[in-house]
Design a protein around this nucleic acid. Structure first.
Lengths: 143, 143
DNA sequence: ATAGTGACTTGCATATTGCAAGTCACTGGC
DNA sequence: GCCAGTGACTTGCAATATGCAAGTCACTAT
């Protein structure tokens, strides 16, 4: 391990050092699909354990891929949103999705908002953070 | 977990079920960069442990992403090559690399053979499996 | 015979994941 | 007031994954 915490200076290996575990990209997918709150994220089809979800949210926040925003004061509750940096991971998820659809039988098809989306559509201050774009959300038949 | 071994039918989650661990995509990157033999793969910049490398090679072979070919008989020795299915992961690696270069300071730049390559260039029976395309290999300054 | 090489395998400590239950701070209903 | 419900985590513990370092095996060369 290099002194910076990365395995090497390779951009692939370094990116994977940040989110190359079983769950981080799955959580990000769920956020791309419009989920914001802990319960919604936990409710995605993969049934992530709450301790793993809490841990991943904290990590993704630490790495600047998502940000936490309060949605109520008592008790303090937060929603999670993509940052620009996090939204820029859309092409990775799209490439993964295309590979999955092509090579693993009986996967869900990709919804148009995802297949044709651009990172900017998901920027926190962009026009397309509008949740109405997300359709059926993470528990839908597609993603 | 579904009865098929996948967490859900989402193509992203399913793909990650196959290779969403700390090392699989790093190993695949090293193979894309031209490494073939165990020692070459172990020699990449990230310094993977031999037990993890052996395990990942076996898994990647089981999932049909790489294939093993003998390069000598005594003692029996093998080289590892991408399958079509494995080569089709190039866009994923390219997207990861682009994100890494953009968002993590001081990463290696992408060599043209990688940045501009297509999956077909890396097919086992394609024209571009030629190792001369791989330039300096995995231990080079780029990837 | 010994030493070296390459491809793993093994032993063991540490880290991560997964399951299930628990805790806390609220709210609402009686 | 009490109790139950809810949402967001936290905790305890077993199973699995990772990492380090050494070992093993089958060869080759000297």
């Amino acid at each position: 391990m290099m002194e910076t915490g990365f395995r090497s200076q390779c951009p692939i290996a370094s990116a994977l050092d940040l989110f190359g575990d079983r769950w981080s990209l799955v959580v990000l997918r769920t956020i791309f699909a419009g989920a914001r709150r802990f319960g919604e994220l936990a409710g995605a089809s993969e049934r992530i354990s709450s301790n793993i979800l809490a841990d991943r949210l904290e990590r993704l926040e630490t790495f600047g891929l998502i940000e936490k925003r309060p949605y109520q004061q008592a008790p303090p509750r937060h929603e999670y949103r993509l940052t620009r940096r996090g939204a820029d991971l859309l092409p990775v998820l799209q490439a993964l999705a295309r590979w999955g659809v092509e090579h693993i039988p009986e996967r869900w098809s990709l919804p148009p908002w995802f297949a044709e989306g651009r990172p900017e559509d998901f920027y926190p201050d962009g026009p397309a953070s509008d949740p109405s774009r997300t359709g059926s959300g993470p528990s839908g038949s597609s993603i």
